[in-house]
């Protein structure tokens, strides 16, 4: 496999590790979404070489993190979760718009 593909894919590993290391009962839901987003980003970067559209990787990764925060907010109704959800969704949309228009 091309080294560039491995470098690109490995950018998701710190995020994956963060959610795995900080996995706690009280925020298990967000951790699960975080781990899933890391796995998506890693495998997405690998399958770009087989035709997967690379521009979707970052927006979808942040979108999954945003969904995790929304899910956690709906369960716990904590303002912090809502703020995280809005931030992640905004980053996801912002990155997608940047990729399309810049």
């Amino acid at each position: 496999m091309d080294i560039a593909a491995l470098i690109f894919a490995s950018a998701s590993l710190p995020i994956l590790a963060f959610h795995a290391v900080w996995y706690r009962e009280e925020r298990a839901l967000e951790s699960v979404y975080g781990i899933f987003s890391g796995i998506f980003a890693f495998s997405g970067a690998i399958v770009v070489t087989y035709g997967f559209p690379g521009y979707l990787i970052l927006p979808v990764t942040f979108g999954i993190l945003g969904l995790g925060s929304i899910h956690a907010y709906l369960r716990e109704k904590k303002a912090g979760r809502a703020l995280k959800a809005v931030t992640f969704i905004a980053v996801s949309v912002g990155v997608l718009l940047m990729e399309v228009f810049l």
Binding site: A4, F8, S10, A11, P14, I15, A17, F18, V21, W22
Partner: peptide, 22 residues
Amino acid sequence: KVASAVMVYLIAAGIYLAFFSY
């Protein structure tokens, strides 16, 4: 936790920079 989150995103950004400079 916040410090490690910031660190994690900085590392990810650094890896992306390495990718674009490769």
